[in-house]
Nucleic acid binder design. Structure first.
Length: 618
RNA sequence: GCCCACGUAGCUCAGUCGGUAGAGCACACCCUUGGUAAGGGUGUGGUCAUGGGUUCAAGUCCCAUCGUGGGCUCCA
């Protein structure tokens, strides 16, 4: 099945300033166009500054992007942070010099003369003239036009648009952020260029907000939090991209898995378990050795027979399907598995929990008849949303990907599958985009992205039809007519992978998990040693009520214990001293600083269990 | 995999010009027994990622490897 994990960087969107999560107003849209012009213009100004500093610099491309801009350069030496400061300072001067941006359309000869010492520009000119690509490598429309923009001494091959004068760029609302390597044309066989990223806004306040947002992103970085909160570790000695779940991370995972299993039971799924390795011939038949081998680990030899570690669970589920003749009467079959798979990822792409080499998919396969498709798809979509909402995600963006040119399976089946997907999305009233021809070759799919607390989008859920595997494995069921038919097969993962979803959860909650997920839900804080026994007796009652509890019986002062609990982001702190012991109470302080105060132990238990039941933060 | 940067105590980091390793937190022990975000003292803890090289001398300079980070790329 498809990779349920989002492409790198898909989560990084800064929406709070521009759209506030709502629909974009006309005014905002105009502002957006203006921002884009500012950013694109800032890229040109930066290129001028770089060219002045490195007269031999070769320019590649420099577009506006979300939140800013970049420009790629071929330079004689690597850039340093000091270079960036210098370039940024020079940019401010250029802006102050107040150059007009002037567009010109020029002919080929002039273009070639103008950019004679700019090989990348010449290559772009070739491409534009051949009608293939525009300057961003996208297919161009209409007849090729060579357009340049000048401002002051600087000229660039560019379609625009730009602001009319450099002074429209607010010098206090720009900042250069980083240098990174980037291949020319994104092609690893072509030269590696240096890319400077910058950000640009209309006002200094917007810039400050954006930088503050980036700081917040950094503060919530799951790679830091999983370490600080003692949840998960990675080990050089154990190999990169392989997560180790510590006891506290394990508790959360267990809650997630238990909840997941219970939901699936209620949703009419069966839970299955399959092996971690399978014979080469299985992967040959499934097609993985032909199409997915570069993501699979090298085979191991078992008594002269090749075995592979599974990168996916589907072939195993199909083998189970085929253990006997299936009747239409037993369909749909909904088989779910928390299946741990291993995929080779190039070392450079590994990223905390968001991109790993071994992970557990919350996978399921649905086998059904054509008549059942619509209901099944609708049900899967509902089920997905219910699951995601349970974890505190409220906003979704849905993508429907349809039949690509190269595909397997009859168009009628594709048609039916796509219609069922579309109907389901519409029935749920979700905003969605259609990616025409963007489906996998084996079937159309829906991807759902969730929006986190910082407005970033993450892809977790994927629901994919598969017209390929049922054919390859010759899967059938006996219909009402006594004849054999090909079942529909749907792959789906809701959370995607537990590792990745966990990473997203950590960032979404900034490590302060809602009570039902918190590894420690309450900590007893005895004020003095004479309260420790009482604290333990209360802790036992809480444990019996099903709560995850600890007692901080160290000789620290109460204040220090509270601080420790705050740092651990424990939802409830229960202080017990003379007064509480006397009255058989606990004195509640919540993680958010609220102090509801003294209450009977039973009262606290009720309160906590209610928060657990309702998945409340506190 | 590629470009660049980084790797010093469990964690966060300092370490000057190459001259024989330091802080805070954590941990252990002792004192302290307190009322809503850090009480005090003492102590343990380092093959400076690994392996080579240069040098009288390497945490420091050079090379390689491993890992991490920012990106690129790929993503059935």
């Amino acid at each position: 099945m498809g990779d349920p994990r989002a492409p790198r960087g898909a989560g990084v969107f800064f929406r709070n300033l521009v759209s506030q999560g709502g629909e974009m107003s006309k005014k905002k849209e105009q502002e957006n166009g203006r921002l884009e012009r500012i950013r694109h213009s800032a890229a040109h100004v930066m290129a001028q500054a770089v060219l002045e500093k490195f007269p031999g610099a070769k320019l590649a491309i420099g577009p506006a992007i979300e939140n800013g801009f970049y420009y790629d350069f071929d330079l004689p030496r690597p850039l340093t942070p000091e270079d960036l400061e210098e370039i940024e300072a020079r940019m401010r001067e250029i802006i102050a010099e107040g150059y007009d941006f002037v567009q010109e359309e020029i002919d080929e000869e002039e273009a070639r003369r103008l950019f004679a010492d700019q090989p990348y520009k010449l290559e772009l000119i070739d491409e534009i003239l051949s009608g293939g690509m525009d300057e961003h490598g996208r297919p161009a429309e209409g007849k090729p036009v060579l357009s340049i923009y000048r401002h002051g001494p600087f000229v660039d091959l560019c379609r625009g648009p730009h602001v009319s004068n450099t002074k429209e760029i607010n010098p206090k609302a720009i900042k250069l952020l980083s240098v990174a390597g980037a291949y020319w044309r994104g092609d690893e066989h072509r030269p590696m260029l240096q890319r400077i990223y910058g950000t640009a806004w209309e006002t200094p306040k917007q810039l400050r907000q954006y930088l503050a947002w980036r700081e917040e992103v950094e503060k919530r970085d799951h790679r830091r939090l999983i370490k600080e909160l003692d949840l998960i570790s990675f080990h050089e000695e154990g190999g990169p991209g392989l997560a180790y779940w510590h006891p506290k991370g394990g508790r959360i995972r267990q809650v997630i898995e238990d909840f997941w299993r219970e939901q699936h039971r209620k949703g009419g799924y069966e839970i299955v378990f399959t092996p971690h390795i399978g014979r080469a011939q299985l992967w040959e038949r499934s097609g993985h050795l032909d199409f997915y081998r570069e993501s699979m680990y090298a085979p191991m030899d078992v008594e002269g027979v090749e075995y592979f570690i599974k990168p996916m669970n589907c072939p195993f589920h199909i083998l189970m399907y085929k253990t006997r003749r299936r009747s239409y009467r037993e369909l749909p079959l909904r088989w779910a598995e928390l299946g741990t798979v291993y995929r080779y990822e190039r070392s450079g792409v590994l990223h905390g929990l968001l991109r790993v080499r071994g992970f557990t998919q919350d996978d399921a396969h649905i086998f059904c008849t054509p008549e059942q498709i619509e209901d099944e798809v609708l049900e899967v979509l509902r089920f997905s949303l219910e699951m995601l909402r349970a974890f505190g995600f409220e906003e979704f963006q849905v993508y429907l990907a349809t039949m690509p040119e190269k595909h397997v399976g009859e168009p009628e089946r594709w048609e039916q599958a796509q219609n069922s997907l579309r109907k389901a999305i519409e029935a749920e009233g979700l905003p969605y985009e259609v990616d025409e021809g963007g489906g996998a070759f084996y079937g159309p799919k829906i991807d759902i992205k969730i929006k986190d607390a910082l407005g970033r989008l993450w892809q977790c859920t994927t629901i994919q039809f598969d017209f390929n595997l049922p054919e390859r494995f010759d899967m059938t069921y006996v219909g009402e007519d006594g004849k054999e038919h090909r079942p529909y097969m749907v792959h789906r993962a809701l959370l995607g992978s537990l590792e990745r979803f966990f990473g997203i959860l950590v960032e979404h909650y900034a490590g302060a998990f809602p009570v039902w997920l918190a590894p420690v839900q309450a900590v007893l804080i005895p004020i003095a040693d004479r309260h420790v026994d009482y604290a333990y007796s209360v802790a036992n009652r809480l444990r019996e009520a099903g709560l995850r509890v600890e007692v901080n019986d160290s000789s620290d002062r109460m204040q220090a214990k509270i601080r420790d609990a705050q740092m651990e982001k424990i939802p409830y702190m229960l202080i017990v001293g003379d007064r509480e012991m006397e009255a058989g109470q606990v004195n509640l302080r919540r993680r958010d600083g609220e102090v509801p105060g003294a209450m009977a132990v039973e009262t606290f238990i009720d309160l906590a269990l209610e928060a657990v039941r309702e998945h409340r933060p506190l």
